[in-house]
Design a protein around this nucleic acid. Structure first.
Lengths: 389, 389
DNA sequence: TCTACTTTCGAAGGAGCCCTTCATTAGTAG
DNA sequence: CTACTAATGAAGGGCTCCTTCGAAAGTAGA
């Protein structure tokens, strides 16, 4: 509503140009006629728009597709390789990065192992290595980056300072935003990792096509990310989704049921304990099953709070434990069905460990979209192409 | 983003016409020059747009304002009296209605007392009387209505069937949507009452200017309404906000602390009991204060779940008990501060009993806005004026 | 190889919308 | 009554889009 303004004729041209860009981005190379159909413009006008976009570098002609009737149509594509996006996932045990083109097609991925106790400065170095690795693998440089989106465990302030992090001890109070902006010569976006994972599920995972999604990050630490009305919900202080902090929601201590189960062998490292319990439950061990059910009981309380409040279409079970979704989903569904007014779909994530990185890429791509398609802010269409080209 | 499309020149005119309508609606009568400034158009173009709108009946010339320098400027206003909106609040004890013009200015309000046990058919008759009363008071007829927005206690399906209602026994399963559409010869919108109250607070109450709002309906029955990103959040099945159904959130039985306090005189009707406790607490009675604190304890649990999940700017305390906000706000704030990561503002509603009706009016006005300002749906600008005129 | 058919291309002519400019008009101030 | 102010209304011009048409560049079939 607010982005609806009239203006002079150049504005109409701008709208039509953006319309053309959007269609070309969405559906790959298109002929002029196809593009004219989609934009609603006449063919001659479409031609003019495309010529202008080609001159600006946004669009490029590709060879006509052979084997069609009639005179071969010229085809055009969006130059998604004009710039590149990076996604970063700062976890307690891994730092991951991915590089994509402007359409979000992933070109490279890297992983740098770290420890929860790794000092912040070394963690920063790992971030830089992870991104540099992606750039090197793809033959790009930092100058080719348009946007870097960073996801991290913990709660951030809107400005990008780590407000609180249970998973990384010396992360709290760290001004991640400042350091990331110093590290990359382009725009930097910061978000909570669960929210980015939720976005990844919305765009590339099991939540595709939904408007309202609850994403459960189910692992040694619990978290949640919300998609509301198709958008990541941050909250006014960027602290949304932290139901784990409410004792009555029974999330904080829930993983203990799995960690302290007696099927876990003596001397198992803390991070592996839950895996034993889940594996034993899958094999039918009654003690392990009981622990898993106690876990599901607690998981369901906080989840039910979210479902009752938001009435989402789908609840996505993600995070490390989602590999054991087969033993978790049924008890979780049972318990939710008891209290929920309208039972949502409950499904396990299929994206795996790259979830957050993919979400970061999507987040960066969204940012570009917003810049392009929000008329009253961001770059006007004759946008100066970044230095890299 | 989706409502951003180019098109031919008439589309530009449409955008500029809508822009003019919006400015005229927002800021009352405007001169041509003032309107040109706001829309960004030149004066001659603005004139043409306004002439067209005047011909269609959307806009009307008013006498120039005297006492200005220079040649007097012609002034125009949006004809908000082209059509009318009605808001209805179906409660357990009252049916309220209000009538407003297209700008949401309230012209008349009525109230019809009912009982929780009033049969559905009689409740419907009360609704009709309430609306007819408003129309009669304003000298209008049902044909003048463009939109009726109805708020009711209970959970609705997206189609308008009452899914569940704790406050009105025979309301469950009732096809309210069908009956309302049969009653009024115009568009009918249905919503939950707490959500409409939240909208009223957002537009006319203490939550003005916020993007994310949690509205607490605090009365003999508890409810909640959420505003997310400036919009009423319904959820996929129109069942959002029903945290009261979760036992762990401790909302369902919370009012019992106030009802069963020993300061309540014997034989007090159930609906008045809590009032005694709250009054006694305000007077300093220690027993009543203890009951109020137990109540606040429970209220805070469900509220904290909402605040942690959504991180709103403001929590609005509304509903019948909000008259006693002076004894409730402080304990509620204290308890929230203990668990919340970022403490929101917590304030009492100031709108009183008309809250839901006003929210319904706003909801109907929003609907009109959406129709007008969403280019790809709703009436194109040369909209046929309704039969009434 | 040639012809018929299909589809696109490119140019020309025309209409709609907006802009700027400027002389004119209708008030107020002194 | 005159000077000043600000809006009015008409004229002329530019940009963007549309429709229409003959020409062009392929495929399919004889």
């Amino acid at each position: 509503m607010a982005n609806l303004r009239g203006g002079d004729l150049s504005r109409l041209r701008q709208l039509n140009s953006l319309s053309a860009i959007r269609e070309l981005r969405r559906d790959g190379p298109l002929t002029l006629s196809a593009l004219a159909d989609r934009t609603g413009l006449s063919r001659p006008s479409t031609k003019e728009v495309v010529d202008e976009l080609a001159e600006l570098g946004w669009v490029e002609e590709v060879p006509p597709s052979p084997g069609t009737m009639g005179r071969p149509a010229r085809r055009y594509r969006f130059r998604a390789d004009n710039g590149f996006l990076a996604g970063v996932d700062i976890g307690a045990h891994n730092v991951r990065a991915a590089l994509s083109d402007l359409d979000g097609r992933v070109l490279a991925e890297t992983r740098q192992p770290v420890e929860p106790g790794t000092p912040a400065e070394q963690r920063l170095a790992a971030i830089e290595r992870a991104v540099e690795g992606c750039l090197a693998m793809s033959g790009k440089t930092a100058a080719d980056l348009w946007t870097v989106a960073v996801g991290t465990t913990g709660v951030l302030t809107p400005e990008g300072v780590v407000r609180y992090s249970a998973g990384i001890p010396d992360w709290s109070g760290f001004d991640l935003g400042e350091r990331m902006r110093a590290m990359f010569p382009c725009e930097v976006l910061l978000e909570n990792d669960s929210r980015l994972a939720a976005l990844a599920e919305l765009r590339r995972g099991v939540a595709r096509g939904s408007r309202d999604v609850v994403f459960l990050h189910v692992a040694r630490r619990m978290g949640a990310g919300l998609i509301i009305d198709g958008k990541v919900h941050r909250g006014h202080g960027a602290a949304a989704g932290e139901i784990v902090m409410l004792p009555e929601a029974r999330w904080f201590d829930a993983p203990e049921h799995l960690n302290s189960c007696e099927v876990v062998p003596e001397g198992t490292p803390a991070e592996d304990a839950a895996g034993f319990t889940l594996a034993a439950a899958r094999a039918g061990d009654p003690v392990a099953l009981a622990a898993v059910h106690r876990y599901a009981d607690d998981l369901a309380v906080g989840t039910a709070a979210m479902v009752l409040l938001l009435d989402p279409e789908i609840v996505v079970l993600g995070g490390g434990f989602s590999r054991s979704a087969d033993v978790l989903l049924t008890p979780l569904r049972d318990r939710l069905a008891r209290v929920c007014i309208r039972m949502p779909e409950v499904r396990a994530s299929t994206l795996g460990g790259e979830c957050v990185v993919l979400g970061a890429i999507e987040y960066a791509a969204d940012h570009l979209d917003r810049q392009l398609f929000t008329p009253d802010s961001g770059p006007e269409l004759p946008v100066p192409l970044p230095a890299g080209r």
